[in-house]
Design a protein around this nucleic acid. Structure first.
Lengths: 346, 346
DNA sequence: CTGAAAGCGCTTACAG
DNA sequence: CTGAAAGCGCTTACAG
């Protein structure tokens, strides 16, 4: 690959002029431009990005910190939706995406700090999790960045879905159907989003004079298998729940399997609700009632926040993306006996 | 962020010495090293990757050309498996992944050429599709790259699954069960992988004295919806097939839905087979019989091929990753009447 | 063990 | 409209 100097020599101009031609900067005489362009075409010259970055300070690369190990990333459709949103905005701006995952070896210590202090990317989006706390970002970050998730004491804008509201809607929906014993499958420890969802459940129950009894709070790890285990435990309770709200869709699928194993028909004998509305939710039979959490929009909003700062016009933070209850085929009123019983309880 | 010169000044040494400390190169007196390291720690200095790349010529970035629009990428679990494999090997080597997608605006002309001639990445993996033909790669590519898919007249190593063998196994399995009218859902136009699968079907049928009649060759576009439509057409035939082989899992899901719509019980009244074995395949009820195409291993092999060239020890090409028939719950012998009928036919 | 100098391949004011 | 010169922030032989 020739360099700009060689092109200059071949075209009988200075490197500065070649640079002007390449970048359409300032005036260049038409004939000169033509000559340079010809040489470029003939040689197949492509300017070195690396050299360019050093002088312009723009790499046109957006960093994305995915604080999961790769086998988790690609298994989580919701995360993929987020990536899709980010990718789409980055693409519009002519940016490429650089994936940073948590390194297995070496200084896994603080991948966020590494991403934010490296000069490879012009900006970054960080997905908040238990392991990656936006609050721990180094002080003098020089590039724009945004957080997908909850970031309280943090200079970067935060974008998250209305987890609290979504959970309130689910709980309200189940109460309205007549459910009084509602099981919940959460995780431990809980990332902020699940905290919010659980808070939504508790507040809504309380507002209706009910409470989330400890045994009704199951624990999983986001995977379908863990949801299945947790659901089996809940359903083995002396007084099993008539409805299970799994705090993500994949665990809800597990709950569905558990019910199938026990021969419980859905939704007649057990209602199940998820959270996320991943595309799989509609493919299953029966189709899952869940909360639509628009991952795509989260990604879009986060990327836009970064570009807004880059353009000197920061947006207001936090951005809360609304969620929406999608009632499909896994929720129904509880069986008669349960209704009667709960009638007395309530 | 300070530069290497400032660090040098503060530590009372030359920039060259700071560089040696940073890179553990050649000998530096212990006390000098300590002094420099202290200054680095105090200032929080992080060397500029951009500058480094320009002198070392290694960016530690691996390019990945995904020739789909972003909404397709993230909807295809098989592609995600591939990415996961690539990511994992890249990670081992301390490399990050740069995603190149087909740009919507601008010079969508030849994203492959752009990726291969840019100096941003040290190497690249290209996913072959109808739109991205490895054969059209520019002549003097200076960086190592590998193709996932079929690449005939091409310098780069190619890695693909044994599509042909997988399809042969499926067809053999269905024939063994007693099926004689087998419908196939393909796409048009067909990428190389589907060509191979279809060839496998045809060869196996022929070896058994049968043929794939034109009306039995349905056409979809990889999506579940298209699979559903194609299956409905096949099943509306005067002599409908007793088994449908969808050339990817997502279309197989569509076929399953079509059967459900028509009230056909699976597998008693219709056998369905897919290809890919995406994780969803086991979650559905009944679980899908399909061909395991190890996307993860494809990604691993492709990334390893790139690093092998980078290390000066190219691997043999093409690499064919074996496929495996996974018989689950969507295949069974055809209904009696059909068997009898076919008995006469065969 | 340490440093001065040249170089990586561009861009950017500044003259002309 | 065009070019000489300096600079982006490192690394790499080469002296010492």
């Amino acid at each position: 690959m020739p360099t700009i100097d060689e092109i200059a020599k071949l075209a009988n101009v200075s490197p500065a002029t070649v640079s002007k031609v390449i970048n359409n900067r300032s005036y260049v005489r038409a004939t000169t431009r033509a000559r340079v362009e010809q040489v470029i075409a003939e040689t197949g010259y492509v300017p070195s990005q690396r050299a360019r970055w050093l002088s312009t300070r723009r790499s046109h690369i957006l960093g994305l910190l995915i604080p999961y190990r790769s086998d988790q990333i690609f298994a989580d459709p919701h995360l993929l939706e987020i990536m899709r949103g980010i990718e789409s905005v980055a693409d519009e701006h002519g940016y490429s995406l650089l994936l940073s995952t948590v390194r297995t070896g070496g200084e896994a210590a603080n991948p966020m700090a590494r991403l934010l202090s490296s000069d490879v990317t012009d900006g970054a989006v960080v997905v908040e999790t238990l392991d990656v706390r936006p609050e721990t970002a180094p002080a003098g970050v020089e590039k724009p960045w945004a957080v997908i998730g909850y970031a309280n004491d943090c200079a970067a804008p935060a974008i998250h879905a209305d987890d609290y509201g979504g959970a309130c809607m689910v709980t309200g929906h189940l109460l309205e159907l007549g459910h009084r014993r509602i099981g919940v499958i959460s995780s431990a420890p809980r990332p902020s989003a699940l905290d919010e969802r659980l808070r939504g459940v508790r507040d809504t129950l309380r507002a209706n004079g009910l409470d989330l009894a400890d045994p009704l709070l199951g624990v999983g790890d986001f995977s379908p298998e863990s949801g299945e285990r947790a659901a089996l435990q809940l359903l083995a309770l002396p007084e099993p729940p008539s409805a299970i709200f799994a705090l993500n869709d994949r665990m809800a699928f597990g709950a569905l399997r558990a019910a199938q194993q026990l021969g419980l028909s859905i939704p007649a004998e057990l209602s199940v609700v998820g959270f996320d509305d991943i595309s799989l939710a509609t493919l299953l039979t029966p189709a899952l009632t869940t909360v639509r959490q628009p991952g795509y929009q989260l990604g879009v909003a986060a990327a836009e926040a970064v570009f807004a700062i880059l353009d000197g016009a920061p947006l207001a933070s936090p951005v809360v993306i609304p969620t929406r209850l999608v009632v499909r085929a896994t929720t129904a009123p509880p069986r008669k006996e349960v209704m009667d019983e709960s009638g007395t309880v309530a």
